[in-house]
Design a protein around this nucleic acid. Structure first.
Length: 596
RNA sequence: GGUCGCGUAGCUCAACUGGAUAGAGCAUCUGCCUUCUAAGCAGACGGUUCGGGGUUCGAGUCCCUGCGCGAUCACCA
């Protein structure tokens, strides 16, 4: 039984009976009752006074009288101005819990037949992953899991930026200064090694510019004329021509980077169903340019360059093909969109990309609509804010980035020292302990990055940001571990939590009622998180549920309870909370330990 | 300068999409381990929701305006 729809139906009927007015069930909105009033659900009557033809207070009173009389789930009510507060019947709560326990995967929706593609991560292969990538990856993974839970078929994809001038810079620096170094010989991860040469390139390039300027050259000209810049550009041309030696070097170095990335992805706990590589897609999109010209949505300038005129939509003109016929960034994005749709036939296509590309995606989606791509209606740019450090923005070339591998390792170390300080490591094998530190450290980090609304930019202070108390991943994990201990003990004692037994319970504690009420909202929470592409909704829910459970845990004894029915009910309630916490955390990519 | 986003307790964030007296965590202070895990619980302290107008039964939320911060406005990706 669904308690929320039962209430809504009762209210809808009350409108019919008391006012002869129609109020469809879907239009009945309930909100949680404020703590200072008696009841759990509140119906606000102000918007409906028009329909009832009574003032809000009278409306609330008359509805209250009707539902108390006619609905089995409503035991009592009180009216404060236009607010109708409802007190539900005990047996309704008990049945509700029973129904949740019986339902497999409570809260997750049945398949809705829709397909959604989520693109995230999308790294450059010239440098290692950093803190900003962590937010991207955690977001993309979590949103994918949330969409699955909401009934979608999800395809996670990673569009790897594996070509271009920036890659050539690393390659050139390696060729000039590498002396045949390999990840094995240097003893570092492949992505780190390649990243070092990207930095090396920049250092040497700056030296060349300085030298040229010292010889009297203009600074702007020096940037163009520096041999390293010339060399990188030549290398890019050679690569595009398929020059065997350049391609071989490119393959070798990208191979190192992928080994490094795969290790980092594994540590992060993210995965992909499909990879796209820009080296395969960078020539796509030109057919769409032709198509747009034919349809008259693009126009050609005298130098043969092709443009989209978006001025009528409040934007500017946007170049989609250079005068020499070569592509720009948006050209290949247009082509890749077609490719993705051909591969997966999505109803929705999500791009998890930082907010510095808001304008780019606005333009891209409009162009695709203008050339008649119906699938463009389902495209969405999941734009997230940058992660700033106390020192300001992260700049990879200035070495102020927080490396993803290093940060995760720090988290594991911090989790280890916390756990040891608390003396909670008894009975763990070394392997189990390591596994626990991994779950806790990663849980703290993921939760920290995901609990904030994606579009907000956020501050990350390595010393202070990560805590293990309060509104944190480990707090929620701890709640789960506590309940797991209860479940183990109940198992040992052979507690019978069958529906028959728990339905015999004769009284409920306020914290049990509030806990069950929170549990009933889980399906709506999942749906809301999916609709808003927001893991923060799930995170906040987990915290609220864990907090409420901990209150219950402190106030109510389980195994000292003499009434066997109450005892069984509390065990069942606890297990249901643990189950929802566990599965909600999984939507964030966070694992819930059995012990900690 | 144009466009977009953001501005809530000392700090980090919520606020069910317009509902009641704006809530949590951290920090500070006070209690609670002989009882199922104290990474916990209870309490205190903390607010002109950036300023000013407006819309209505009701505004942190919507509209206008000013201020501040950020992003973007490339034949870069």
């Amino acid at each position: 039984m669904n308690i929320n729809s039962a209430i809504k139906e009762a209210i809808s009927k009350a409108f019919e009976a008391q006012f002869g007015a129609a109020l469809p069930v879907e239009e009945v909105k309930l909100q949680p009752c404020r703590k200072d009033f008696e009841g759990t659900h509140t119906f606000v009557t102000f918007p409906f006074a028009r329909i009832s033809k009574k003032n809000p207070q009278e409306t609330a009173q008359l509805i209250g009288e009707y539902v108390k009389e006619n609905s089995e789930v409503i035991a009592d009510f009180n009216v404060v101005k236009g607010f109708l507060n409802l007190v539900l019947d005990r047996t309704a709560w008990v049945k509700t819990l029973g129904a949740m326990v019986a339902e497999e995967n409570f809260g997750f929706a049945a398949p809705n037949g829709q397909k959604v593609m989520v693109e995230y991560s999308s790294p450059n292969t010239n440098k290692p992953l950093h803190l900003g990538h962590l937010r991207n990856n955690f977001l993309g993974y979590s949103v994918s899991e949330i969409l699955k839970a909401a009934g979608y078929e999800v395809q996670k994809v990673n569009l790897v930026n594996d070509r271009g001038i920036h890659i050539c810079k690393s390659m050139l620096a390696y060729e000039k200064f590498g002396e045949g170094e390999t990840p094995e010989s240097a003893g570092i991860k492949g992505d780190k090694l390649v990243g070092n040469y990207y930095v090396k390139y920049d250092q040497e390039y700056k030296k060349e510019i300085e030298a040229l300027v010292a010889d009297g050259m203009d600074a702007e000209e020096a940037k163009k004329e520096a041999p390293l810049m010339k060399g990188a550009q030549k290398m890019l041309r050679d690569w595009e021509q398929g020059e065997p030696e350049v391609v071989a070097l490119w393959e070798k170095m990208n191979g190192w980077v992928y080994d490094g990335f795969n290790a980092t992805y594994k540590t992060m706990g993210v995965d992909f169903d499909q990879f796209y590589y820009e080296s395969n897609t960078y020539l796509l999109g030109k057919d769409i340019v032709d198509e747009g010209l034919e349809k008259g949505v693009f126009f050609k300038k005298e130098d043969n360059s092709v443009w989209a005129d978006l001025s009528k939509e409040g934007l500017d003109e946007k170049l989609v093909l250079r005068g020499d016929g070569t592509s720009v960034y948006i050209t290949q994005d247009m082509g890749t969109a077609d490719l993705k749709h051909k591969d997966f036939a999505f109803d929705k296509s999500i791009y998890v990309v930082g907010n510095e590309q808001d304008y780019h995606f606005d333009v891209l989606f409009r162009i695709l609509k203008n050339v008649g791509r119906e699938y463009a209606e389902g495209m969405y740019h999941l734009s997230y804010g940058m992660v700033d450090l106390p020192s300001g923005k992260m700049k990879s070339r200035e070495g102020t980035v927080v490396d993803a591998d290093d940060l995760m390792q720090e988290m594991f170390d911090t989790a280890e020292s916390h756990t040891k300080e608390l003396g909670k490591i008894d009975g763990f094998t070394p392997e189990q302990a390591t596994e626990l530190y991994r779950k806790l450290g990663l849980g703290a980090l993921k939760y920290f990055l995901l609990k904030v609304d994606p579009k907000r930019r956020m501050l990350f202070n390595p010393e202070e940001s990560i805590q293990f108390q309060g509104n944190t991943g480990p707090f929620i994990q701890y709640t789960h571990a506590r309940i797991s201990a209860i479940a183990r003990k109940a198992e040992e004692l052979g507690i019978d939590t069958s529906a028959e037994v728990i339905s015999q319970v004769t009284a409920l504690e306020p914290s049990e009622i509030e806990g069950i009420r929170l549990l009933t909202t889980f399906p709506e929470v999942v749906a809301e998180a999916a609709a808003n592409y927001s893991p923060a909704v799930i995170a906040n829910y987990c915290f609220e549920l864990a907090k409420e459970y901990n209150r219950f845990y402190a106030e109510v004894s389980i195994f000292n309870e003499e009434d066997a029915n109450k005892l069984a009910f509390r065990v069942a309630f606890s297990q249901q909370v643990a189950d929802v916490i566990r599965r909600a955390l999984l939507l964030l990519g966070v694992e819930a330990p059995e012990r900690m």
